[in-house]
Design a binder for these strands. Structure first.
Length: 381
DNA sequence: TGGGGTTAT
DNA sequence: ATAACCC
């Protein structure tokens, strides 16, 4: 069993006729017998591409997607002018004074488009695993085997390209490899195995060297509908219970709307936070979760106005588990998550169908404020 | 530095 | 039930 990576040349959105630029990494490899063949599709600057679909008039301009004080991603026009992913807005504007910034804190359009891409891939082959919003692994073994039956043999399917940029190799490993003089997949393939094992340790060395030949044992696990729905918001400071309530209520409202669209019912509620003074870096989060009481479950799709208040109460209890009353606090982030999602008793259809609707446009958003049923399109499957 | 998500413990 | 890790 072998996982082979292949670069996707170009993916087309059916209705928009948009071309997606697959990242130029990974190269192409193929091999025939008794191995699985996996396509790894990694969309580049995904959020920026979604915005360019929504606003075609901005296509040729340097475009960045902003969340709070950073540019999380940008299109190639901006990139050529020096803007980078996760760059501070101030720095980005210095590098590129004409940079057009769009707010990307609401992930709805990206989430919807992301699932449309996955669904599109699933049409050619059902074994698709998602990783984040912009990566998909597709097990195309059967497709390849059928194709090979129609050809003479595997001779014409040569390995052709050995450049890696950043795939499964993080910054640390990258530097270690660089020190060893390994800069390309080809170097990695031909590097003395014994030396590599001494430098990186046996497990990592063997894994990387197998990867360099396009070999990967890990199976493709089809993703299906999301296992959790969450919303979060970062802020400079949130230091009173009233502010906590405000923020939680806003997150909850959006989540309830999403749950409604999804059709499943959550059985677990979680609150996560990041403290302002957390000395151990900004990445540390604390969370508390609890099961949802059964009597609340049934209220989920009845438009129950008490539901929001009840959930808010629960969240506040979770909050007090981490931040006892009377203790002063400063929060950088609050996150609410529903998980353990189950199909309600009488349901007939899976919930992934929801994601097949139209991409919302900025105009519709501005006009509506909230999603209106009339603008939704019936699922195509 | 943001706003997500899944898996391992 | 919580942390750790992925994008």
């Amino acid at each position: 069993m072998e996982r082979l990576e292949e670069m996707e040349e170009e993916e087309e959105e059916e209705e928009e006729e948009e071309s997606w630029e697959g990242e130029q990494e990974g190269g192409r490899s193929a091999e025939a017998s008794r191995s699985r063949v996996i396509v790894h599709l990694d969309l580049d600057c995904f959020y920026a591409q979604v915005e360019m679909i929504r606003r075609p008039e901005l296509r040729a301009k340097p475009l960045g997607v902003q969340q709070k004080s950073i540019v999380v991603t940008c299109n190639y026009v901006a990139r050529n002018l020096g803007v980078r992913k996760l760059m501070a807005v101030e720095e980005a504007k210095e590098k590129c004074p004409h940079l057009v910034l769009l707010n990307g804190e609401d992930l709805t359009p990206y989430r919807e488009t992301s699932y449309r891409v996955t669904e599109l891939l699933q049409e050619t082959c059902p074994l698709v695993e998602r990783l984040g919003f912009d990566e998909n692994f597709v097990d195309v073994t059967e497709l390849v085997e059928k194709r090979l039956e129609q050809h003479e043999g595997p001779e014409d399917l040569a390995v052709a390209g050995h450049v890696y940029g950043n795939r499964g190799i993080g910054s640390k490993t990258f530097k270690r490899l660089e020190t060893l003089g390994i800069e390309t997949v080809w170097h990695l393939q031909s590097f003395p195995t014994a030396v590599l094992e001494k430098e990186l340790g046996l497990p990592l060395a063997r894994r990387l060297q197998r990867l360099s030949f396009g070999e990967d044992d890990s199976p493709v696990a089809p993703s299906g509908p999301p296992r959790s729905l969450s919303e979060e918001e970062a802020f400079k400071s949130c230091s009173s219970e009233a502010q906590v309530k405000e923020n939680l209520e806003k997150l909850l409202l959006n989540l309830l709307e999403r749950l409604h669209q999804d059709g499943r019912r959550p059985h677990t509620l979680r609150l996560a936070l990041r403290r302002g003074s957390s000395a151990s870096g900004r990445f540390h989060r604390e969370s508390r979760q609890c099961p949802l009481p059964p009597h609340l479950l049934h209220r989920f799709h009845k438009g129950d106005s008490n539901l929001l208040a009840s959930l808010l109460e629960l969240l506040l209890k979770l909050f007090r588990k981490m931040v006892p009353p009377e203790v002063p606090f400063r929060l950088n982030l609050l996150s609410v998550s529903f998980s353990n999602l189950k199909e309600p008793p009488g349901s007939t259809r899976g919930s992934i169908g929801f994601y097949l609707k139209e991409i919302s446009t900025p105009h519709q958003e501005a006009a509506g404020g909230h999603q209106e049923a009339s603008q939704l399109q019936a699922p195509s499957r």
